[in-house]
């Protein structure tokens, strides 16, 4: 299993919808709205590193209102 954390920066105040859509993505186990430089932190748990990219880069970024993402793969 590969675990990764995806920092999501939005450009909309509609954080509820963003969280809902992100939670619906395969491999996403948790999504939280946070205070600070990013607006949501998403935990992804998938089988392969390639699947991380698929979930984070492709699916999350496709959501309307997502400005950018930054992904951190857990090493432990």
């Amino acid at each position: 299993m590969v675990t990764a954390y995806v920092m999501v920066k939005a450009h909309t105040g509609d954080a509820d919808r963003l969280r809902g859509e992100i939670e619906g993505i395969d491999g996403v186990t948790e999504a939280h709205i946070v205070a600070g430089d990013v607006d949501l932190i998403v935990k992804v748990s998938v089988d392969t590193p390639a699947a991380v990219k698929d979930a984070a880069a492709t699916h999350v970024q496709d959501i309307e209102g997502v400005e950018s993402t930054q992904t951190y793969i857990a090493m432990d």
């Binding site: 939005a10 909309t12 105040g13 954080a15 509820d16 709205i33 205070a35 607006d39």
Partner: peptide, 13 residues
């Protein structure tokens, strides 16, 4: 620092 965040902080913070 950005206007869209107003809504988010009003709601959650």
């Amino acid at each position: 620092d950005e206007d869209y965040r107003e809504e988010i902080y009003r709601r959650y913070a």
